[in-house]
């Protein structure tokens, strides 16, 4: 039976369909879930997609993190289900206290959209096991409020426990402290990052590479990783 990966749509989600498509291309079955429901429909893993839920009112991801379905998301995450938060989804995971730190407006004050190089620093999480440790990958980044911040104490702990999963390479696009692009929870099943793996999964639609324009598919391993993770746990 195919791994079933739920993608939750919130009011103002933009990349839910792209995330579903990435799940499909990776070989799993995407399941569209709705923020207003309390039903995870028996999925094996969850993705909180990018976008501008509730128009980024109050704080990015803050109102979405109070959605009905988040009760079930928090319970599932705490029981070990793989959960990936991309961009706005990462912001929601911090607002829901499933991940530490917070995201604030980019230090340069502007929205930024670019193909971003990241270093994969932890390949033990549910979403990164198909990467090589220390591997550099290129996936799109697009955010206005992607500056990752946390207290020095929290940053030291995240680094000490290997929970900095991705770091920006060459360019720090948003003022994130210690170039942090993505982190995980202690258990490694919950991962959040600002860049967008779901936009780099199919030749012709990904970032440019040395080989050919738009041929980058470095994001695919996120989704194949979780398939292996869920199959391994059966």
């Amino acid at each position: 039976m195919a791994t079933r990966v739920g993608v939750i749509t919130f009011p103002g989600s933009l990349d839910d369909r792209d995330a579903q498509r990435a799940v499909r291309i990776a070989g799993a079955e995407p399941v569209a879930l709705w923020h207003g429901s309390h039903d995870l429909e028996g999925v094996d893993a969850l993705i909180l997609p990018g976008g501008f839920s509730y128009g980024d009112y109050l704080r990015c991801g803050a109102i979405a993190s109070l959605s009905p379905i988040m009760t079930e998301v928090v319970a599932a995450a705490n029981s070990g289900m793989p959960v990936l938060g991309i961009c706005n989804g990462f912001q929601m995971l911090t607002e829901a206290h499933l991940l530490e730190g917070g995201l604030i407006r980019n230090d340069h004050g502007s929205f930024i959209c670019r193909d971003q190089v990241l270093r994969v620093e932890n390949t033990d999480t549910s979403w990164t096991r198909d990467f090589e440790a220390g591997e550099n990958i290129t996936i799109p980044l697009k955010n206005g409020e992607g500056g990752f911040i946390a207290s020095d104490e929290t940053l030291d702990r995240l680094e000490g426990e290997g929970r900095v999963v991705f770091r920006y390479v060459d360019v720090n696009p948003n003022g994130s402290l210690r170039d942090i692009a993505g982190i995980s929870n202690e258990r490694g099943n919950v991962v959040g990052l600002m860049p967008h793996p779901e936009h780099a999964v199919e030749p012709g639609f990904g970032p440019d590479t040395d080989v050919a324009m738009r041929s980058g598919v470095d994001g695919l391993a996120f989704f194949t990783s979780v398939i292996e993770r869920t199959l391994a746990s059966v």
């Binding site: 803050a62 917070g102 604030i104």
Partner: peptide
């Protein structure tokens, strides 16, 4: 708990 986020505000 809701109007502010103690990590950033």
């Amino acid at each position: 708990e809701i109007l502010s986020n103690s990590v950033i505000e």
